[in-house]
Write a protein that binds this DNA or RNA. Structure first.
Lengths: 225, 225
DNA sequence: CTAATAAGTGTAAAACTAACAATTATAATT
DNA sequence: AATTATAATTGTTAGTTTTACACTTATTAG
């Protein structure tokens, strides 16, 4: 070990994940009702400790994968929570990420094993430690980013109707939008492409399915909703 | 120590500061030409290790104070950089903050002692480790935040002219603005208050000095420039 | 064939943004 | 005392974007 670093304090470092999903027209979080210590029985975010030979971003991916079985998930760092007493057990510095997942794709067995549940944003139970603050900051960050980057599509299936897309953004921002104005705006974004496919799940008439074309987006990456 | 945490890896945790200042119509960073190991002689951000009994936010404040002598400085966490090899000496996880300081108020002796220098944003020398990425992210975050929160005033003296204010925002966003449009917008923000004081530093005629009234802002916190 | 339902569509007023140049107040110079 | 130089201050118009608002269409279940 280099002389220089020798007598510096070292810290436990954890990652915590705010896992967003979109289902039944509502934004939801995947939360644990902890079936393990510490704080067994209480509600918390999914988390885990960083490991010796692992980039922190990879720790977050690993922890998310442990719960959902998913890879290649959109994740974004929210920030780091480093107050001395944030974990009453011992000092732990936590790096927080939010994840956007397609709610049909996760591994139900794993989720059951961890005793995790999807909870609507407005029905979040009391959470341990500073997890409520983490959720608040993650939501605010996600709301802001979703307005100028096309990250919302990570919450939708590959093909989606315009009604689904609008409902998603209404859920994210917790406010209704005008249907005609919304569709006018979408029509200006040529990376949101109409397909020939029609979804008849929600109407007799059926609705055209659209897809997000990332290649087209990258040519002229402007987005706002 | 709690049984639960026992065999977890522990990490060195550092903070690094991107210190913004505004001087001579330009945005600048306070950077170290390191007169200490490691990487002595090279340019870097001001940084330091987190201590055992210290919130991470307070570590950042302490490190900033060690260099500038300043307290009560506006600081914002940019994010945490946790790749295994980001510090070639040994693994160090770094929590990055940006700070906005009034460029007349810092302690010149301390700054000299650390061999720190103000560098224009477009003349930043090569920096060690992942510090260039940190600077890039800090600048982007600060630019975005400065557009919707009144943080720019932290870079100005308590009394400032509209020309100064405009030049500041032009420096932050690296783009010219129209003087009349800028002033029209400022006129709509009643928390930017005209005083009776006049500054004759830059013109024979003199320019009215304005101040930012945070109390008024808090009543109706909307800002965009 | 009727009823029910979600999908799909256009227009006009209002608000905001962007582009543009002359006048004013003052101090230094002649 | 008059002239000059300089930054500060001030409005208008055209263009663009945003908002508000309601009917028609396609389809299937009954």
């Amino acid at each position: 070990m280099n002389q220089y670093y020798k007598k510096r304090a070292k810290f436990h470092v954890a990652v915590d994940c705010i896992i967003f999903g979109f289902d039944e027209g509502e934004l939801k979080l995947l939360l644990l009702q902890r079936n393990f210590q510490p704080a067994k029985g209480q509600w918390s975010l999914m988390g885990g400790f960083a490991e010796e030979e692992e980039n922190i971003d990879d720790s977050a991916k690993r922890v998310l994968n442990e719960l959902t079985g998913l890879d290649n998930v959109y994740m974004k760092q929210v920030g780091t929570f480093g107050n001395i007493d944030r974990d009453p057990g011992e000092r732990v510095i936590s790096v927080v990420y939010y994840a956007l997942i397609k709610i049909n794709e996760y591994d139900r067995e794993l989720v059951n094993k961890h005793n995790a549940h999807w909870v609507k944003m407005d029905e979040i139970p009391p959470l341990i430690f500073d997890h409520p603050l983490m959720v608040k900051q993650a939501l605010e960050l996600m709301q802001r980013q979703s307005s100028y980057e096309p990250i919302g599509f990570n919450l939708l299936p590959p093909l989606f109707t315009l009604t689904q897309l609008q409902t998603l953004y209404e859920a994210i921002n917790a406010e209704k939008m005008d249907k005609r104005n919304f569709r006018k705006k979408v029509a200006t974004m040529d990376f949101i492409e109409k397909t020939e496919n029609i979804d008849k799940t929600n109407s007799r008439r059926g609705a055209y399915l659209y897809k997000f074309n990332n290649k087209v987006y990258k040519k002229d990456p402007k987005f706002n909703l």
